[in-house]
């Protein structure tokens, strides 16, 4: 798994690529924690280059969403450009009602 963080005007954009499994999920957690520790709780996650995600990765997403939403000034973790298989995993986990999911990255960044 590799990731890049871009600090934008209204949010941070976290772009992930590769495989998110039990081995690599802690890296995703660390990346999200660093963003939130910097005070930013509006985060767009670009998932377009994620090849594989297991429940270990999904657990990180739900925990990060809880932290973002718990802020006094509510933040949000928005999922963007979600590949079909990853979307199916989100659906199977019952996560679709818990996240804003945007097809277009630019739309996600512009509307958070």
């Amino acid at each position: 798994m590799e990731y890049i963080v871009e600090k934008l005007k209204h949010c941070d954009l976290l772009s992930i690529s590769g495989r998110i499994d039990s081995q690599s999920a802690p890296e995703l957690s660390e990346a999200l924690d660093k963003i939130m520790e910097s005070g930013q709780h509006k985060i767009v996650l670009d998932m377009s280059e994620i090849e594989f995600i297991s429940s270990a990765g999904l657990r990180i997403l739900i925990n990060a969403q809880k932290k973002c939403k718990q802020q006094l000034v509510a933040g949000e973790l928005v999922l963007a450009a979600v590949p079909e298989r990853v979307h199916e995993a989100l659906d199977m986990a019952g996560f679709l009602p818990l996240f804003t999911i945007e097809d277009e990255l630019t739309h996600a960044v512009g509307n958070i």
């Binding site: 429940s55 199977m92 818990l98």
Partner: peptide, 22 residues
């Protein structure tokens, strides 16, 4: 429980559920 709200959603147990579903 896949229907609970965000605050009550537990992060564990999904992996085994996935195996059984898939």
């Amino acid at each position: 429980d896949l229907d609970s709200c965000l605050e009550d959603r537990k992060a564990g147990g999904l992996g085994v559920y996935f195996i059984k579903q898939l």
